[in-house]
């Protein structure tokens, strides 16, 4: 007989998304804060070090006073890993997520930054919905929910390029470095750089975003890709952009590469830039 599914009430999903929305925006994860502390030591520019002091003080104020780290509390991007032995009760999953975002943004005094239709004059939805939802069905009977509020300033500096197979990894490196160079001070450096490689036009951008879920310092398990991550990060930190773009030796805190298979004719690459306010929170139900 087939195993009966584990039932999860959607009210739990809603409450979890609400809590994660508020926590992500006000409580900077420890790995990011510790990376800022280490980067302050590495930064050679005195002005750059003063910027790090501001960022650390900012994270502390946000946490203690429960106010957002950054006023741009972003587009609500949710990643769900749903165990295939789970069944949901009490409505629809996407509605529950959307309601969680809505309640979190209202009750948490987070900024509502979403316009109803991309093509209309500004008419705000008033509750920061709709969220972007990425789901994967995985083995097991658990649901892992990660909320990643993504700010507009760094998202605007991100790029997708359909490269040629002949461009190879050198071509991708040049594309990544060029993207960061052109972004300059705009995306709030020191940044995190998410790189996607392979798949299709849409999937490569997803890979780049997904790479930002990794903790700082967490290398790709493939040793060759891990080496590229370290090398490209060094290249980026030679650009001189520095904290807040005022000049310095730390432009990026880390770089992550995620790959997938590719078509013989294609070599898609994507760079998703994340500001230093690299916010995310995860829960497992």
């Amino acid at each position: 007989m087939a195993k009966s599914p584990r039932v999860i009430a959607l009210n739990e999903v809603k409450k979890t998304v609400k809590r994660l929305s508020i926590e992500a925006c006000t409580d900077l994860n420890k790995d990011v804060e510790e990376a800022l502390v280490r980067a302050r030591e590495k930064e050679e520019s005195p002005v750059g070090r003063a910027i790090f002091d501001q960022l650390l003080k900012n994270a502390d104020i946000a946490r203690r006073q429960s106010i957002p780290i950054c006023q741009d509390t972003g587009f609500a991007v949710l990643f769900l890993e749903i165990g295939q032995d789970v069944s949901f009760s009490g409505g629809y999953l996407e509605d529950a997520i959307s309601e969680g975002v809505s309640e979190g943004y209202k009750e948490g005094y987070l900024r509502k930054s979403i316009i109803k239709n991309a093509y209309t004059n500004p008419e705000n939805t008033g509750d920061n919905t709709p969220p972007i939802i990425h789901t994967r069905i995985v083995p097991g009977d658990r649901v892992k929910i990660t909320m990643l509020p993504k700010g507009g300033g760094s998202e605007n500096m991100s790029r997708v390029r359909m490269m040629k197979p002949a461009d190879g990894m050198e071509g991708v490196r040049d594309f990544v470095v060029e993207t960061v160079r052109d972004a300059g001070a705009n995306p709030c450096p020191p940044i995190l750089v998410g790189v996607g490689l392979g798949g299709t036009f849409d999937y490569v951008a997803y890979l780049a975003k997904k790479s930002l879920l990794r903790g700082i310092g967490e290398r790709n398990p493939d040793p060759e890709l891990a080496r590229y991550e370290t090398e490209w990060l060094k290249e980026i930190n030679k650009l001189g952009i520095g904290p807040a773009g005022l000049g310095g030796t730390v432009t990026a805190l880390d770089l992550f590469i995620e790959t997938f298979g590719r078509h013989i004719a294609s070599y898609p690459a994507a760079v998703n830039i994340q500001c230093h306010a690299a916010r995310s929170k995860t829960a497992i139900l």
């Binding site: 501001q54 960022l55 104020i61 106010i67 957002p68 006023q71 705000n124 709030c188 773009g245 230093h276």
Partner: peptide
């Protein structure tokens, strides 16, 4: 230049705030 992302810190230097126009734009 104000430091991007240092929004909680910068908030502390604002002592008064009043909407004077375009209230319909919300945060804008």
């Amino acid at each position: 230049g104000a430091t991007g992302g240092a929004a909680a810190l910068l908030s502390g230097s604002i002592v008064e705030s009043e909407v004077i126009a375009f209230d319909d734009l919300g945060p804008e």
